[in-house]
Design a protein around this nucleic acid. Structure first.
Length: 441
RNA sequence: GACCCCUUCGUCUAGCGGUUAGGACACGUCCCUUUCACGGAUGCGACAGGAGUUCGAUUCUCCUAGGGGUCGCCA
């Protein structure tokens, strides 16, 4: 019986939650959940000057949004705390004393403490990259404590992994080149190193490391744009790992079941926003109407500034366009005209309206028919338009687009007759009349 | 510069010595259709290069090239 699996995500609160970091957290989480292990969140805030409360909040919030709950860490507690490195100085001091006792550190004139590398070849056991051998180093000894008494990443990272009994270190491949230093430290403490799983990096479309300037680099940007966490979760899993399934769209419990760190790729992957959006679009379509409404309302009201009194109307309007959009931020432009009368006539719409002189009479005929109809449900409206068109010897298809232009100011959208049903007779007729007035006689 | 990781369609990838090199996204065409989408059908499109090993290399080895990463009193 081997020790229970304990993995950790150890961000430093110096910026927003990066998609690369989120994916690292995700893989750790999947591994813990798959094996009944513990997923630990440890905050590496040793660099006082660069930490910010806002960054801290963004990280916790982003993780929660993705559904990555931690078993130990900030706000969760646990038996291996504190989970902020800034609060673990006593532990680090004690570990430094061990190194001093073993004669593995020395103090510089300015007070900085350096660790004596063993200068032996060191092999990193990595589940993804195999046994990676590093020759005896010629680098200068590594600083582990600053003159002000604060500790350096490599040191605290190892100490905490020992103290928190971490069994698997799953992190970005950018750490691979430094891992021998960590192993040297583990050995100096008389410990075996954990199993390493270095995950390939997520690159931007042009092939370099994703940075804050790149579209979609921060998890927060997805939250803001109305992406669904399930979709981001799903897409991120597919960057650097291929689940053994004939489908790509997989929910979190399936992904958990399928997850196997040994299958993680060893090559970097580029982020593809189009595919990310494809996932989101599909999750959007499958969302429960009530849930979709709940997510959409704040965007419609707060972001787009729309006044929505009739939520039942909003619900139907949203349903009518949900398969046309990729993410919720696109929603307002598709439905705003349901909620106010001063919607703009888009340029292409006016051009199409005035392109043919007969458009005006077609629209007038439609207005008359709709005005006379007693039933303006989707079905009734369709019958009315069909009859009006028939009377003029044209197809309904000649009339529908004109109605769409008049009723929405747009050249695309839900079915015209559905728009009529949702708008109701009064608003429908008023909109047509107003449009007619814009057209030359 | 040294060291480490990597290299299949534009992108994400399957492949684990013998395949018409498969799928997804994107893109093109067609169908459906009052628009935009969805859906269906179909097409375009890849093994970085060179040596080996082998009866046979996308697959194994080496070299070159290219990409990424690391060499901090950042994490």
């Amino acid at each position: 019986m081997s020790a229970p699996i304990r993995v950790r995500f150890a961000p430093s609160p110096t910026g927003y939650l990066h998609v690369g970091g989120a994916r690292t957290a995700l893989f750790n989480w999947l591994y813990a959940r798959k094996n009944g292990g513990k997923f630990i969140l440890r905050i590496e805030d040793t660099d006082q000057a660069r930490n910010t409360p806002a960054a801290m909040a963004a990280i916790l919030d982003g993780l929660r949004w993705l559904g990555l709950d931690w078993d130990e860490g900030p706000e969760a507690g646990g038996d291996f705390g504190p989970y902020f490195q800034s609060q673990r100085k006593a532990i680090y001091d004690a570990y430094l004393a061990k190194l001093e006792a073993a004669g593995r550190v020395y103090t510089e004139d300015n007070g900085a403490v350096r660790f004596n590398f063993s200068r032996q070849p060191i092999t990193v056991p990595d589940l993804v990259c195999g046994q990676v051998v590093f020759a005896a180093t010629e680098e200068p000894d590594m600083t582990v404590r600053r003159p002000d008494g604060s500790y350096i990443f490599h040191f605290v990272n190892v100490v905490d992994d020992i103290e928190m009994q971490i069994t698997h270190v799953m992190r970005g491949e950018d750490h691979l080149s430094n891992t021998w230093k960590h192993i040297d430290l583990f050995h100096a403490f008389g410990k075996e190193c954990p199993t390493y799983v270095h995950i390939p990096l997520i690159l931007n479309p042009s092939g370099s490391k994703m940075s804050k300037r790149d579209e979609g680099a921060s998890v927060e940007s997805y939250q803001r744009a109305g992406y669904l966490p399930e979709a981001i979760f799903n897409y991120l899993c597919l960057l650097g790992w291929t689940p053994r399934s004939d489908k790509e769209k997989l929910d979190s419990s399936t992904l958990t079941e399928l997850f196997n760190p040994a299958e993680i790729h060893s090559h970097n992957a580029r982020f593809d926003m189009a595919k990310c959006q494809w996932f989101n679009a599909h999750y959007l379509r499958e969302m429960e109407p009530a849930a979709l409404l709940r997510e959409a309302l704040p965007i419609l009201r707060d972001e787009a500034g729309l006044t929505i009194d009739d939520e039942a109307l909003a619900a139907r309007a949203i349903q009518s366009v949900k398969e046309k959009i990729t993410h919720l931020a696109e929603l307002p432009e598709w439905v705003h005209y349901f909620f106010h009368e001063d919607y703009p006539m888009q340029p292409d719409v006016m051009a199409k309206l005035t392109a043919k002189p007969e458009n005006k009479s077609l629209l007038e005929a439609a207005a008359v028919a709709l005005g006379e109809a007693s039933d303006l449900s989707e079905h009734g409206a369709h019958a009315a338009v069909e009859a009006a068109a028939g009377k003029l010897g044209v197809k309904p298809g000649a009339m529908m687009p004109l109605l769409r232009f008049a009723l929405s100011g747009q050249s695309r959208g839900p079915g015209v007759t559905l728009i009529i049903e949702l708008l109701g007779k009064q608003r429908t007729l008023a909109r047509i009349a107003r449009t007619l007035a814009l057209l030359p006689a």
